[in-house]
Simulated scan of single mutants.
Amino acid sequence: MSCDHTRALALAKAGQWDAAHELVQPYGDRNACLIHAYLHRVEGDSSNARYWYRQAGETMPANTLEEELERLADAIADQA
């Protein structure tokens, strides 16, 4: 079974942090790590967010949360 990245982002956009986090937490693929990182940014846990961005091979971006959510959604849509 694989992570439903689109669903995780929809949950995040709807403000359902716990549900989105629970969905991505078991997975270690790049997109799940990026979503996980974003969720920790939303939570205000920058240290944990940086960890998950590193797991995805990226550094934490200097964009807004709204911009990051859009970036992730666009990237995942492009992969579909």
Score class of each variant (00 low, 15 high):
39 L>R: 07
19 A>C: 08
5 H>D: 15
3 C>N: 11
5 H>T: 14
30 R>K: 15
51 Y>N: 08
57 G>I: 01
70 E>D: 13
74 D>L: 04
8 A>S: 12
54 R>G: 04
40 H>G: 01
30 R>V: 13
78 D>C: 00
1 M>H: 13
11 L>Y: 09
6 T>D: 12
66 E>P: 03
43 E>I: 06
57 G>H: 03
4 D>M: 13
30 R>F: 05
16 Q>E: 01
24 V>A: 08
7 R>Q: 15
74 D>A: 09
8 A>H: 15
15 G>L: 07
61 P>V: 01
58 E>W: 08
68 E>T: 00
32 A>L: 08
12 A>V: 00
35 I>L: 07
21 H>K: 02
36 H>I: 03
3 C>Y: 15
28 G>D: 13
53 Y>S: 07
63 N>W: 11
16 Q>I: 03
73 A>G: 10
70 E>N: 14
2 S>G: 10
12 A>K: 00
6 T>Q: 15
36 H>V: 08
40 H>R: 10
43 E>Y: 03
50 R>E: 15
66 E>W: 09
33 C>V: 02
73 A>I: 06
64 T>W: 10
53 Y>C: 00
70 E>R: 14
10 A>W: 15
23 L>F: 06
56 A>D: 09
45 D>V: 02
42 V>F: 09
55 Q>M: 12
72 L>H: 10
26 P>Q: 06
59 T>R: 05
31 N>D: 14
9 L>I: 06
26 P>K: 02
67 E>T: 02
75 A>E: 15
70 E>C: 05
22 E>G: 12
44 G>C: 04
39 L>Y: 05
8 A>K: 10
24 V>M: 04
73 A>Y: 14
10 A>S: 15
4 D>F: 08
36 H>M: 01
75 A>C: 13
66 E>K: 11
54 R>H: 15
13 K>V: 00
3 C>R: 14
77 A>Y: 13
35 I>E: 10
61 P>A: 05
11 L>K: 07
2 S>T: 13
55 Q>Y: 12
70 E>S: 14
47 S>G: 11
51 Y>C: 00
44 G>Q: 07
71 R>F: 06
12 A>S: 07
6 T>Y: 09
41 R>T: 01
59 T>A: 11
78 D>M: 03
45 D>C: 07
56 A>Y: 05
43 E>C: 04
38 Y>Q: 00
77 A>Q: 11
74 D>Y: 06
41 R>V: 02
38 Y>W: 05
60 M>F: 01
7 R>A: 02
48 N>H: 14
69 L>P: 09
24 V>D: 14
28 G>S: 13
2 S>Y: 13
64 T>Q: 11
55 Q>W: 07
25 Q>E: 04
55 Q>K: 15
67 E>W: 05
29 D>P: 07
25 Q>V: 01
61 P>K: 01
80 A>L: 11
8 A>W: 09
56 A>C: 13
41 R>N: 03
9 L>S: 06
59 T>K: 11
25 Q>H: 10
63 N>H: 14
52 W>C: 05
36 H>Q: 05
43 E>F: 02
22 E>Q: 11
79 Q>G: 06
16 Q>R: 03
11 L>C: 03
16 Q>Y: 02
6 T>F: 04
65 L>P: 08
65 L>K: 13
45 D>M: 02
79 Q>L: 15
69 L>S: 06
3 C>V: 12
53 Y>E: 10
71 R>D: 08
50 R>N: 09
21 H>N: 07
38 Y>D: 08
